[in-house]
Design a protein around this nucleic acid. Sequence first.
DNA 1: TGTTTACCCATGATATCCCATGAACACCCA
DNA 2: TGGGTGTTCATGGGATATCATGGGTAAACA
Lengths: 154, 154
Amino acid sequence: MALFLSTFVNKVDKKGRVSVPATFRAALSPQAFQGIVLYRSFTAPCIEGCGMDFMERLSDGAQTFDAFSAEQENISALIFADARQLPWDPEGRIVLPEDILAHAAVAESVAFVGKGQTFQIWEPAAYKVVEAEIRARALQSRPTLPLRPKGGAP
Amino acid sequence: MALFLSTFVNKVDKKGRVSVPATFRAALSPQAFQGIVLYRSFTAPCIEGCGMDFMERLSDGAQTFDAFSAEQENISALIFADARQLPWDPEGRIVLPEDILAHAAVAESVAFVGKGQTFQIWEPAAYKVVEAEIRARALQSRPTLPLRPKGGAP
DNA sequence: TGTTTACCCATGATATCCCATGAACACCCA
DNA sequence: TGGGTGTTCATGGGATATCATGGGTAAACA
């Protein structure tokens, strides 16, 4: 399974291009669509990113779990409407659309933040602030991470 | 399942490279990603280390797929954002990034400390102190390890 | 025909690979 | 049992490839 790890800060050139981190591209290389999918976050001034496979699974989830999720269905509808497929060029760069840049208040560089099966794109300084907050809270609460047993069902 | 045992102290050369202990590499050799994953500990001046399979289990446990239940996601998100995939070279070495070195206050050598399914990387002197403390406390409190019966009677 | 989009080439910095060395360990054989 | 030998492993340095980045140019679109 493809995992997005670590955080990379890359520059946005005057054409609006930015290199997708090589490891992210590598994680998506088995997929048919050679590029990434972006949509604006509802909860933060950042961009949500993922591979096409994740969108397909989101689509499955929206149809399968509709017992709970009148809410979730609305949200995934919003996501699909807002999402953009951005193929990368031969050098591994994508062009960030205007409204995307605006939503994340991006100026001259962006931070690709790995989140496991997805990632986010932040204005680097803004992410630094958010990260510090979460890290401070984590120190207090001594969180326990839910680890699923290796082969078994929950 | 991969198990990390024992403690190894290896040198960091001027390029920031350090040999991953051969037994650790052997434990991870069945995996697709030939390398280790490192992230900064929240609670101690050391580096947490594991194999990619462990990160995948973390990803499953965090249920990133259900993108709107943001409870424990913050914590695991922090790990994913901080984590680095470090593939080893043909000689079995990895390059320790700057901020990683700084967090553990590493100078010229590091201690790989086996922790079962994960391991830690310490500045050797710092670990010696911590180990002594833990050992002293263990003498007093007589901790018990929960052992699951393998299938037969005890 | 003007504008935008996508491809091509160039470049510097960084990281990856390749070879060499030395020490520790295990193994073999007398 | 002791010496010799071979292999594995940690370590060091030089050469090469990869990656992020910048700009130019041709094709697609309106």
